[in-house]
Every structure is written in structure tokens, then in C-alpha cells.
Design a binder for these strands. Structure first.
Lengths: 170, 170
DNA sequence: AACCATTGCGCAATGG
DNA sequence: GCCATTGCGCAATGGT
């Protein structure tokens, strides 16, 4: 019904198995997997031959639909047979709540960062304008100083002439 | 051996099954899953009851290790029974190569963005300094103009006094 | 211990 | 088809 009729999306159930070591994790349905990176910073997925899951495409414009019939209440408890201290609370509700809160925090933080960057750019532009204005002001004042100095030197000359003229008179 | 001895990491193999519609994808080992979002922008995973996979933890400082024994060469071909045009090339090699190239491009792009931001910040600071210098310069020039004007007015007074004195003499 | 904030990273969509 | 950019979620980590 509602699931398969939105063309681009498909709902997928899957199981996990792992192959290694500390088998304390119960089966989990993965949403995001992170594999160890090789020291050179390259991914290891290739070595692993893992093929990422990719058919659960985000429906770009999704209508609200009822998926309740698909909701499997998760295992929740996840007993840990070995006495190992259990992973904080990976499975289910608690985990999802933390994830969701973090996603919100991430969005918030990134918006903040974006705004900060924009402000910085804007400030740089403003400062550049201001700078140009100040330089023009300086140019103007410099000319004024030059003019005054020149005028003063003229006055000096005139005064000296007058002095010598006065001496002649007397 | 090499896998399980780095405490925080574990290697996990898993299979996917999906439940819906266009079943043309073969089993995939997912690395990153994106589920459709509800129209309010919130995640739908919760409704689905999916529990994300989370025990494949990134070993913060990984040594180079041999995972070749775990590499399952992926199904690769993925025949499409129905005459549907196949998804560009989801499965395997081709896909992984594109992903890897994109990951590289992403890192590159983000480094570039980071550098750009840093440059902008630095430029803003430089402009701020420059600005302060210019303002001081302006202050200095303004004082100079004031002094010259004051001096000039004094000279005017002196000259006028001398003029009147000269008249007295003659 | 519990939270939020920040950051690096991979995936997918999209732009050029 | 390819690379560049961008939004997004996950997990690690930093700060309280």
C-alpha cells in the first residue's frame, strides 16, 4: 500500500551478521556504518568488498504515510551473555532519542557556523569600504597640510621682504 | 588475529533484505543508509523501528591490518529479471569507484572551503588593523592641520600689529 | 552520568 | 560521465 506506491522510495528490512571478536552486539539494522580507515586515510570498504546499501532512496518530496504496520518494536533489552559492560544503549528508543537530539544539535551548530561565516565575509567587505573612505580622507588632509605649509612659507617670504623694505626706509 | 586485537573495532558482515516494490537490488552490505524523511523533516527510522548498526566503531588510531580474508567479492552482475532499466550501477566495483572518487572530491572541496573561511577571517583581521592605523594617521594629520591654522592666525595678528606699528613710525 | 556543541566522514542529490 | 558543492545522518569528542 502506502509504501510501495511512492515510486522512488522503498522500504528495506535487513539483518546483520558479524564475523568477529567481541560478539556482544545483537543483530542490528544499520543505518550508517563506519568502517575503520586505513592509515593513509583511505577507505577500507573496498578491501572489504562491501557494497553499500543504496536502494532506500530518499523520496525528495514525500507525502506523510502510515508505516505503523512495519514498525517492529526493537529487541530493546539486548542481553549481554558475557558479563561485559553493555554498550551505552545502542538499541532502540533511547538510542534513537539521542541520535535525534544530536541531529538537531548538528543542524543548529551548522546553521550557526554558516551564519558566522557570512558575518565574517560581510564584515570584511564593510572594513574594505571603510578602509577606502579613510584613505580618501587621509589624502584630503594631506593636501590640506601641504597647502597650509605652502601658504605659510609664502607668508614668511613676504614678511622678510617687508622687513628688508622697512630697513631701507629707515 | 589482527581484527579483534584492536579493542574498539570489530568487523561486521551482514546481509540486507528488503521488503518492497522494485526488487531489483541484490543483497547489499550497507555502509550508509538513508531513509525517507517525514514531511516535517524528522527521521522515519523510529517509526520503522530500525535500530541502526553501531558496533562497527571506527578505531580512532588504526594500524594497518589485513582484512583480505573477510573480503567477499560482491555479486557484481545483478541481473535484472524484469526489463527495467537497471539502476545506473549500484552494485559493486563501478559503484565503489564512483563513491571513492566522490569521497575524495568531498574532502578536497571541504578543505578548500575551510581554507577560504580562514583566509576571510584573516583578511578581516588585517583590515581591522589597517583600519586602526589609518584612523591614527587621520588623527595625526588633523592635529597638524589645526596647528598650522593656529600658527597662521597668529602670523596674521603679528602682521597686522606690525602694519599698525609701521604706520605709527611713518 | 547526561547533555549539547563541534567536527570529520561517507552517502546521495544536484550543479556545472 | 566527471568533479564540485551541499544537506544530512552517524559517531567521536570536547566542554559543562
Amino acid at each position: 500500500m502506502s509504501v510501495s506506491d511512492s515510486p522512488p522510495s522503498s522500504i528495506c528490512m535487513f539483518a546483520l551478521h558479524h564475523q568477529s571478536s567481541s560478539s556482544q552486539d545483537s543483530g542490528l539494522y544499520g543505518q550508517h556504518m563506519v568502517f575503520p580507515k586505513t592509515p593513509d586515510g583511505r577507505s577500507m570498504e573496498q578491501m572489504m568488498g562491501f557494497v553499500p546499501y543504496s536502494s532506500c532512496v530518499t523520496p525528495s518530496s514525500s507525502e506523510r504515510e502510515d508505516f505503523s504496520q512495519f514498525v517492529l518494536p526493537p529487541p530493546a533489552s539486548t542481553l549481554h551473555p558475557s558479563g561485559q559492560k553493555r554498550r551505552p544503549s545502542k538499541d532502540s528508543v533511547e538510542y534513537r532519542q539521542r541520535r535525534e537530539r544530536n541531529n538537531i544539535a548538528v543542524r543548529k551548530s551548522r546553521d550557526k557556523a554558516r551564519r558566522r561565516v557570512q558575518m565574517t565575509q560581510q564584515r570584511a567587505l564593510q572594513l574594505q569600504d571603510e578602509n577606502q573612505r579613510l584613505q580618501l580622507h587621509i589624502q584630503h588632509l594631506s593636501h590640506e597640510v601641504d597647502s597650509l605649509r605652502h601658504y605659510l612659507s609664502q607668508r614668511h617670504l613676504q614678511a622678510r621682504e617687508q622687513d628688508t623694505a622697512g630697513e631701507d626706509v629707515c
